[in-house]
Design a protein around this nucleic acid. Sequence first.
DNA 1: CCACCTATTTTGATTAGTCAAAATAAGTGT
DNA 2: ACACTTATTTTGACTAATCAAAATAGGTGG
Lengths: 220, 220
Amino acid sequence: MATVAVENYLKHVLLLSEGGEELVSMGDLAGALAVVPGTATAMVKALADEGLLEHQPRLGVRLTTRGRRIALNVLRKHRLVETFLVETLKMDWSKVHAEAEQLEHAVSDEVLDRLDALLGHPRQDPHGDPIPNRAGKIDSQVYATLATCATGRRLRIVRVTEQSEEFLRFAEDSGLRPGAELSVGERNLVSGLVTLTRTDGGKIALGVAAAGKILVEPRG
Amino acid sequence: MATVAVENYLKHVLLLSEGGEELVSMGDLAGALAVVPGTATAMVKALADEGLLEHQPRLGVRLTTRGRRIALNVLRKHRLVETFLVETLKMDWSKVHAEAEQLEHAVSDEVLDRLDALLGHPRQDPHGDPIPNRAGKIDSQVYATLATCATGRRLRIVRVTEQSEEFLRFAEDSGLRPGAELSVGERNLVSGLVTLTRTDGGKIALGVAAAGKILVEPRG
DNA sequence: CCACCTATTTTGATTAGTCAAAATAAGTGT
DNA sequence: ACACTTATTTTGACTAATCAAAATAGGTGG
Ligand SMILES: [Mn+2]
Ligand SMILES: [Mn+2]
Ligand SMILES: [Mn+2]
Ligand SMILES: [Mn+2]
């Protein structure tokens, strides 16, 4: 069975390749896993020997079919566990990522299936992140962000792509969670400021970096 | 934080000392952890250096207060997780031990508290094993077993002290689960055979070793 | 008391995962 | 073409946990 470290490496390669076929650089991978670059290189060579990913020296890595299968299963565990923690145990959505980071390696496939059924086969987790189904199919729809969408239109938040506790607490306090509706008032590319108007009329100011982490779709 | 291995060693020392103050032998400890004796010796020395247990060379080990505190917390996680798996996820009681063996190391204290509340602060797990409370207090009542109790009296099963999947499936199939009522017909110490009579009149034959794993109290 | 048996400890290796720091390969610009 | 910068790889070392096999300490029986 894959160790905790192996599962984490594979999952992060999957997340960093964002569905596409691009190579993931060693620097990005090492950064995501919080290890020094040499460590990532060593591990990647071992995983390549195991046939779980393909390593193009000095360019980067890409998952093989086998590696991707494992990574999707871990990601499914992660996101279903997050959903369970919020829906069933009523935990705060800002804290469940850290918990799931551990539990994703301890939950068996059998428990996974039962959690999935208990929760009614959810398609998104509490952050709006898509949950791969049992077959490994994952919704990879591309959405606009608050940094790129048209201004003035009515929007609905579909996803918040940032796991840090501080950011999620801020988003929660500002009413910026999946399902919330709002519109972008103006966007000043020089100052890097985005102004939002909530349904209740409240206004919120956000930097473009933060705005880019909030995915939206036209309300309809 | 204590590693998975450390948590397992401490928990097994606790289980093998059965509440009392007796020393746990290296052989028993190594056997319970499925490691060779030399490995247990090495680990025990490290844990003694950490102040988590007391090692009397060639005699055995005993938990310190700190070690016992950690062990009880792990045991509480194990048994609450088992209860959750059976009560909420409807898993078979014969399979939950193996699952809990992993999850006991991945569940945080916060998740533990919420599980406890969700389940209504249970005092026993699905096998009748007592669940330590948050303060670390654990019910250590001593019960008779089907191998030692008086014959002819009406009894109620309170606990099944064996975790193996095969044994628990057998017990399940024979109606021998906590709460079930029965009496011991006769016990032949020569042949080592114990004959039970269920409430429904059904008779079951059992070896003394197996009978000793089923704890009972007089029905009342 | 001494030889023997058995549990325990010691010794020497191994594996997985990691870091620090030195070496190297690939651009980039001049 | 050459010097520079930067990402990546290599090298050497370390920790936690383990096993196999040799050494040893305590009883136990005669
Ligand atoms: Mn993880
Ligand atoms: Mn998520
Ligand atoms: Mn365990
Ligand atoms: Mn149990």
